[in-house]
Structure formats: structure tokens, C-alpha cells
Write a protein that binds this DNA or RNA. Structure first.
Lengths: 371, 371
DNA sequence: TTGTAAGCGTTATCAC
DNA sequence: GTGATAACGCTTACAA
């Protein structure tokens, strides 16, 4: 534990304001402002004196002073559930790429998927006087803070959500994507399927995916998919996940609400001695890059989170310039074929008499949660 | 492209300031401030009137006004190369978890690994009057903007960098970790090794890893590892990467500067018909979670980016409270054993007479870049 | 062409 | 207990 020698870096001057520049240039504050902003007349003489003074003093404007006077903070608030989820992180990076160069800075908050922290965070962002808000939260349609934002006239764009409450959203059509998966399953002859989600209660995305999946299954006269809602620990512990799967031996295909879950399912299946896709087909959601590189490339719905971010930023920018709220069409998704999806084994096609399954390699506990 | 019906949300009042509260409560501004902040005396009577007025008006403080007057913005600036890299994203999430509840907000910028954008971003953050800075950049020791921050007395903490220029940094000992990998390789009998990096020029982390790796190889009398610096496209195109690998057929082990590269290497090896680890051992860096779940779990140096973020935040918080800069010991890393590391094939142990390799399944172009 | 002054929303000082 | 008022750094009438 090393302590640095205390050395006071030569404090040129903690704060150098436009007043200092004016004084040094021997002119009024207004003149200095005009010169530095190129916002008004100034004699060549004073102009150069001001420039020099600013240079010498190492002056730079305080965005704070400016913001206060213009009541534009040139700051955009952004709330996402967590940056530890690469989908959101990439979206935020997408925001950055658009916002960079516009002069807007990103003030970031994350809620950790908590529907209360959620609201507080937005309130804080509003207090920071952000000019606009880009939001992914638990329940945008019920957020008091979001309502406050609208009251205050602060433009809001959503990300990932299907549009709600008249708020434009950069999103993919989760329901349509999920129906696509159901169709693929159905076409291959799968009947017993499941939908695997992590935070069903706090993610409308997950719910919309399930809804679409369910709807398409019903449309095709297939049995309702089993809804498996995992806890955090289940998702992170392949052994626990294996137990959960083992309790559902008649499944032939699983639709996971994101790619990480899909990969975890494969690990769990491996533990059970099941082979993917022979014994179990798996399809993910999101289309993370790594899925392609796997030994058994993951079948998944491919989306582009960065594009989501970019679209959200553009939407907000337009709002910020006084544009009327416009809902762009959902961003495209594509079904990425992979090696984790195949027809069910012949002996399992016939759904109602389920063939006995070979005993698993794991000796499983019996206190299994029924999915 | 749907346009929402134009409906002006009932603007209660775009801005309600403490002045409004005071007026409504029939008292002076100072009194209102004292009540709302609990920062001074006030009769029970006026106290309740103010509370009520604030309530009715939906008042909340403007952080801007406060910041201006107190010259503390309660904002921390953060610069990372890119949030699309989950390592940085997780670190930022780590910052958040610590900062949340302290009242500080995160102002985020990313440089896209650009050593100029880098500097501008920091300058912008300084202009925004951040109270402190948490930074991962190309060359902290040469950053003019970072020097400016010190001049201005703005506390700075680094992340990921080995400490430089007297700036405390939350980091792992990259050199030591790399030496550990060299040791593992050496102990297993590998002689011909390579180090694979993506942005060598702009990442001191990569350079430090290579330096450690090289040093330990020399210490053991092993040949210098080949330094392979990939372009972005090479890294993202398994076929291109395969070409690069094919040009180095006598390698038995590769140390990749991050786990994504390590996984990409495996994909490329597969394309060449090489088997991992039989024909080629691979070790990664970072320890991303997914590495565990792979069919062939990845051997890697496991680090905890979130912990890095947390430590950086704590360090900065201490600085913000007037503490002297303290360099904490580097965060721990562990070598995660995986199935991608094994001894070289017997026929390749003897280094100097390289056994001919079976022809690759790819017909490779010959314009290969020599690593 | 230039400078003075008001005002943006706060808080702190200081009389009352 | 209370309320003017100055100050924070800036821009912009407005007056000179």
C-alpha cells in the first residue's frame, strides 16, 4: 500500500473564468465572451488580446455557467438496467457514437433491473437538468419520474421497449422474432418446447417474446410452451440448471430469452449427457458475436444493439431540435441458423407417448422446481 | 413511420424553482432553502407551509444551480476506450454500484481506442466541471488534458493501467499474469509460442502482458514468443485469422491478449483442421464468464473487471474527500485451468526439427502476413 | 466597438 | 426566526 509523496501540483489557478480573461486582456467581460464565442463584433486589436489572454491562462468555458444561463445542459441522461449485460453496453456505445460530435454528453445511470431504483435514477437525472432522456427500464408506462419528465417537457426516447405511452422507442419486434422461432421449431417437428427467461417480471422484452412464442405455438396447434423462469443462481450454476432441465425430460426444444442462457443450457445439457441438437434443440436471442465462434454455433435471433442505441440517439436528437415524436419502424432482426437446432429425434416426434429417456449421468436431487 | 398525435402534455410548469416555492409559501427564499435542506432554523409553521408548497408545485432542486454555487457538480467523469468491450462495460458497472448512493453521477465518454479523441473527451469532461475523473486511455502519461486536470486540482484515478505518473490505478499486474502463463506453457513443454494482440499500439495493457510473457520465456531459455498483432478485420474473420495462423505452423501454444481472441483462435484452428489443445494450446486473458460454459472450457487468466471499477471508484471517493493519493495493491488474478491447454504433441516437443504438419483442410492463399 | 448589468437557481452571509 | 443580497460563470440586452 504505497502512498505517494505529497506534492502539490503547481496550481496555475484552480479556476480561471471569463472574468480573469477579460481582466488580463484589459476589456469587459461581454467583449471577452463575444470574442471567445465569435458571437459579436470586436476590434482586431482586442480580439487578439483576448485570444492571447485565454491562451495564457489556459481558459476553458464552464459548461455549468453556460448551462445555467441558457437552461440547456447539453447533457443527455441514459438509464439502462445494467452495463454488465453486453446488449445494453453495446447500445450505450451506439448512443455515444451518435452523440459524440453533437456536443451532448451522456449522463449514465443503471438500475440493476430494480423497478424502484429505476425511478429514482430518472428523478436524479432530471434534477441534473438533462436536456433529454434515453431509457430502458422495468415499467416505463408506470414510471412517475418519466411522467415528470414529460411534464417538464424533457424529450424521452426509449430503447428496447416496444413503444408504450406514446414514447418513441428504438426496438426490435420481440413478438415477431419469437414467432419466427416458434415457426422454425414447428417446421422441424418440435412439439414440446419451453421458453427460458431470467427476469420475466422485470423485462417486458422477455414477456413480449414469450407472448409471441406462445401465440405462434397455439396458432399451430402445438402444446403451450413451458415457461421456465430462472433465478440468478440457477442461471449461473450449470448444475442447478441441469436439475431444472432434468425435470422436463420430454422437451425437445428450448427458446432462451438471451444467448447467455442458451449457452448455459447447452452446458447443462452436456452435464446431463444430452446432446445438442440431437436430444435438445436450443435457440437464443440477441445474436452475440461469440455465438458464431462456438464449436457448435448457436442458432439465435440476431439483433444489433448498437443500432438500437444509434436509432435512439437520432430520435432524441430530433426531439431535441424540436421535432415531433416519430416512431420509426422496428429495427430488423434475422434468424441466424446454427448447429444447435435440428429436428427432434425420431423416437420423440410422437408426442403423446413419450419414449423413456436414457438415465442421466448426473444423480440428480429430487427437490426440483417444476418449470 | 407513425407520427404521434401532437398532444401537449399539461405543462404544470416547465421549471419550478425555489423562488416559486417561497412565493407560494409566503416566505423568503432563504427560508425555503433552509427548510428544504434542513440547514437552519425555521418555525414549525413556515416549515410546513414550505413543505406543502414544494409538494404542490412538484419542486425539486436544480443540481445545476447547486453546482454553480457550491462549485461541486457531484459528477464524476469516466473515460473508457469502448463500452462494446465487456471488460470496460463491467468495470463501469462496477463504478456505478459504488457511486450509486454517494450522490455522484457518472458522466461517460468513450474514445474508441483513439489517442486523440481520448484527450478531447477528457477536456470536455473537465469543462463539464466534473469533481473527479476515472480514466482508461491510450497514453495517460502523455495526456495534456490529464495534466490539465491535475493542474486544476481535479482528482484522477486510473483503471486497468499499471500506475503511471503518480496516478493511482485500479489494475491487475499484467506482467505477472503474463509470466504465469509463460510458466504454464514452459512447464508443459511448450517452446514455440506466440502472443496475440489486437491493438498493441494503443494498449499498454497488451504491451505489459507481452513484456511479461517475453521476459519469462527468456528467463527459461525459451525462444522469444512471436508477436502477432491483428487488425480488426483479421480478428473478426476466422478465415483471415486462419491464414495468419497457418503461416506459423510450428507454434504449439498461443497466449491471446483477451478471451475473445482466444476463442477466435480456436475457431480458426478448427478451420485449419487443427485440434485444440492437441495441435495447439490456447490461453486467454480476462476470464469472461462464457469461457467456462464452452464445450472446451477456455484456459485463461481470470480477472474481475467489476472489482476494478469498484476499487477505482473507492479510490476516487477517497481523493474526493481530501485523502492523499494511495496506490492500493494490484487486484488479484487467477489462472483458470481449462481444456484448451495441454502439453504439445510428442512429435513436436523436440523443437528444432519440426515434424511436418498434415496439410490443412483449407487451401490457403499465400499472401500471408508474416507475424 | 465596447462595457454595464440583469438573470439563470442555488446557498451563505448578515442584518433584522 | 426570517429575509434581502451577494456570489458562482456565463450570455445577452441595452446603453454608451
Amino acid at each position: 500500500m504505497e502512498t505517494f509523496p505529497y506534492r502539490r501540483v503547481e496550481q496555475v489557478k484552480a479556476k480561471v473564468t471569463i472574468k480573469d480573461v477579460a481582466r488580463r486582456a484589459g476589456c469587459g467581460i461581454a467583449t471577452a465572451s463575444r470574442v471567445l464565442n465569435n458571437s459579436g463584433p470586436a476590434s482586431a486589436d482586442v480580439r487578439s488580446r483576448v485570444q492571447k489572454a485565454a491562451q495564457d491562462l489556459g481558459f476553458s468555458f464552464s459548461a455549468l455557467g453556460r448551462a445555467l444561463q441558457s437552461s440547456r445542459s447539453m447533457t443527455v441522461g441514459c438509464l439502462v438496467p445494467s452495463l454488465a449485460n453486453p446488449v445494453f453496453a453495446e447500445a450505450v456505445q451506439g448512443l455515444q457514437t451518435v452523440l459524440a460530435g453533437t456536443g451532448y454528453q451522456l449522463l449514465i445511470a443503471s438500475s440493476n433491473y430494480d423497478g424502484a431504483a429505476d425511478n429514482d435514477a430518472i428523478a436524479t437525472l432530471i434534477a441534473k437538468e438533462v436536456d433529454g432522456l434515453i431509457v430502458t427500464m422495468v415499467a416505463p408506462e408506470h414510471s412517475a419520474a418519466l411522467a415528470l419528465a414529460r411534464t417538464r417537457g424533457i424529450p424521452v426516447a426509449l430503447m428496447f421497449h416496444d413503444p408504450v405511452a406514446g414514447l418513441p422507442s428504438a426496438h426490435v419486434d420481440n413478438g415477431a422474432a419469437a414467432r419466427e422461432v416458434a415457426r422454425r421449431f414447428g417446421d422441424l417437428g418440435h412439439r414440446r418446447t419451453a421458453f427460458l427467461a431470467l427476469r420475466f417480471a422485470s423485462s417486458d422484452r422477455s414477456r413480449n417474446r414469450y407472448a409471441g412464442f406462445l401465440a405462434e405455438c397455439r396458432l399451430r396447434g402445438l402444446p403451450d410452451p413451458v415457461l421456465i423462469e430462472l433465478t440468478e443462481t440457477e442461471a449461473n450454476t450449470p448444475e442447478r440448471l441441469a436439475q431444472t432441465l432434468a425435470a422436463l425430460p420430454d422437451l425437445t426444444a428450448i427458446f432462451a430469452s438471451n444467448d447467455f442462457l442458451a449457452i448455459a443450457v447447452q452446458k447443462a445439457a452436456r452435464l446431463l449427457g444430452w446432446r445438442v441438437p440431437r436430444d435438445l434443440s436450443v435457440v437464443g436471442f440477441d445474436g452475440i458475436e461469440i455465438g458464431r465462434l462456438l464449436d457448435v454455433p448457436l442458432a439465435t435471433i440476431e439483433t444489433e444493439p448498437a443500432a438500437m442505441g444509434r436509432q435512439a440517439a437520432l430520435t432524441l436528437l430530433d426531439l431535441l431540435q424540436g421535432g415531433a415524436p416519430v416512431q420509426l419502424p422496428p429495427l430488423p432482426f434475422t434468424f441466424r441458423a446454427g448447429a444447435t437446432l435440428a429436428p427432434p429425434r425420431a423416437d420423440r416426434r410422437d408426442d403423446d407417448r413419450v419414449a423413456p429417456r436414457p438415465p442421466s449421468v448426473l444423480s440428480l436431487k429430487t427437490d426440483l422446481k417444476q418449470g
